[in-house]
Simulated scan of single mutants.
Amino acid sequence: MTPEQLKLVLETALLCADEPMTMNDLRRLFLEELSVEELSEALSQIQADWSDKGMELLELATGWRFQSRLSMREYLDRLTPEKPPKYSRAVMETLAIIAYRQPVTRGEIEEIRGVTVSSNVVKQLEDRGWIEVVGHKDTVGRPGLYATTRQFLNDLSLTTLQELPMLDDASAQAESVAQRVMEFEGEPIAAPEDFSDVTDVADTSAPSVDAETDATDEQTNNEKTND
């Protein structure tokens, strides 16, 4: 098989795929045995071929996929006028804390934010497929340890957590993660059941506490004061 034929097969399969394709998936396209190096070289060439087009080939946490470039959003949005869901500051700060300090308990999140984390905030992130319980802390009550999922990485077009922005100003971390999320395009991708490839970045400084919280946080704290 010539290099051009190899690229053609890979390109076709990736364009037709409904979800990211792993190297094993791509190798199964061919009868002959192809090395990872050969596939990687072909994928790099495809990326170069599409460098000036409206779509790009990206390597994500769960494999390779084509997706539209951010510059095409204003045009594609005209086909689907539905607005993406908007998340409160409390949701985004909670997500940022989990992303930068995982694995982390709900109590630790509350300690960092300085306010109670409502169940609705956690549920929104779980329903979106961005966080999950990956274990339990060996302490009183064995609270759940939250971490981000591979779907979170896919939706932000990342391969590992170490690609999250390393910011000198810790107060900007929540806003940075929020901005990346809001720039996400495309349909949700099913998250794998395991969490073995996620890197622990607990040494990164945590997002700051902001005075502005969502209505749920304010109501919860008011109830505590009244009691």
Rank of each mutant, 00 (worst) to 15 (best):
S51A: 14
F30Y: 12
L8S: 04
T105S: 09
S44Q: 11
S68Y: 14
D200H: 14
R65C: 01
S88H: 13
V121D: 07
T22G: 07
Q179N: 08
D49Y: 10
V9Q: 05
D25F: 03
Q124K: 08
Y87H: 14
V115G: 08
M72D: 09
E93S: 13
T94K: 07
S205D: 15
T225A: 15
A202P: 04
S35K: 15
C16V: 04
E37S: 12
L34P: 03
L125R: 02
P85S: 10
R101M: 10
T216N: 06
R150L: 11
S40N: 10
S119E: 13
W64Q: 06
E110H: 04
E175D: 09
A42I: 02
N222R: 15
P84F: 00
T62D: 05
R150G: 09
E19L: 12
D227S: 14
L161P: 01
V140A: 07
E59C: 09
F66A: 10
C16P: 03
L10G: 01
A170H: 12
S88R: 07
S118E: 09
R69W: 11
K224H: 08
E212Y: 14
V91I: 15
R78C: 00
L167Q: 04
D194V: 07
S71K: 09
D138Y: 08
T220Y: 10
S205A: 15
D169K: 12
P103C: 04
L10E: 03
M182T: 02
V122M: 15
R150S: 07
V134N: 02
E183F: 06
A206T: 00
Y146G: 03
D227H: 13
R101E: 08
M166N: 15
A147G: 14
L43S: 05
G107W: 10
L14P: 00
A90L: 13
D25R: 05
E212V: 13
T216A: 12
D52L: 06
P103V: 10
M92F: 07
I97H: 00
R142A: 12
E223F: 15
A206R: 00
R78W: 05
Q5I: 04
T213A: 13
K53Q: 06
T149E: 03
T105N: 05
D25C: 01
N24A: 12
L158V: 06
M21E: 07
L156P: 04
Q219D: 11
E4S: 12
L8N: 02
L161Q: 00
V122D: 02
A172Q: 15
P207K: 02
V177W: 02
T213E: 10
F195R: 14
D227Y: 14
A172R: 15
A61V: 06
S157Y: 12
V133G: 09
T220I: 11
V181K: 03
E33G: 13
L57K: 09
D155K: 11
Y75T: 08
